[in-house]
Amino acid sequence: MDFWLDLLFGNAIGLSSIIVILGALGLMIFFGGYFIYKVLSAPSPH
């Protein structure tokens, strides 16, 4: 476990990759939630 923590947070490249991965996940969750919200709140076509 110490190896992975050192690999991820021991240098700037590991930390920036974690930030990029978390940012991508955050965007996917946001846009997925927004899409579901728009589908559920859309008026019925008939």
Rank of each mutant, 00 (worst) to 15 (best):
M1C: 10
M1P: 11
M1V: 13
D2P: 03
F3G: 03
F3N: 05
F3C: 05
F3Y: 12
W4I: 15
W4D: 09
W4L: 15
W4K: 10
W4E: 13
L5I: 13
L5T: 10
D6G: 10
D6E: 14
D6K: 15
L7H: 09
L7I: 07
L8Y: 11
L8P: 00
F9W: 15
F9C: 12
F9Q: 09
F9H: 10
G10N: 13
G10E: 15
G10K: 06
N11I: 12
N11T: 12
A12F: 14
A12M: 14
I13A: 13
I13L: 15
G14N: 07
G14L: 06
G14Q: 06
G14M: 08
G14F: 03
L15V: 08
L15G: 01
L15W: 05
L15C: 05
S16K: 06
S16L: 14
S16D: 09
S16W: 07
S17H: 08
S17Y: 08
S17T: 15
S17V: 15
I18D: 04
I18S: 04
I18E: 06
I18G: 01
I18M: 08
I18A: 08
I19W: 00
I19T: 09
I19D: 02
I19F: 03
V20L: 11
V20Y: 06
V20W: 05
V20P: 00
V20H: 04
I21E: 07
I21D: 05
I21K: 00
L22S: 10
L22I: 11
L22M: 12
G23K: 02
A24Y: 06
A24D: 06
A24F: 07
A24V: 14
A24G: 06
L25Y: 07
L25T: 05
L25N: 06
L25E: 09
G26Q: 01
G26L: 00
L27C: 02
L27E: 03
L27N: 02
M28R: 01
M28D: 06
I29E: 03
F31A: 01
F31Y: 07
F31T: 00
F31P: 00
G32R: 07
G33M: 05
G33S: 09
G33L: 04
G33R: 02
Y34S: 06
Y34W: 13
F35R: 00
F35I: 03
F35M: 04
F35H: 03
I36W: 00
I36G: 00
I36P: 00
I36E: 04
Y37V: 01
Y37I: 01
Y37P: 00
K38S: 09
K38A: 08
K38I: 04
V39N: 04
V39G: 01
L40M: 14
L40N: 11
L40F: 12
L40I: 14
L40S: 08
L40K: 06
S41I: 10
S41Q: 09
S41C: 09
S41G: 05
A42P: 08
A42W: 13
A42Y: 12
A42E: 13
P43G: 09
P43F: 08
P43V: 09
P43S: 12
P45R: 15
P45E: 11
P45M: 10
P45C: 07
H46P: 03
H46S: 11
H46K: 14
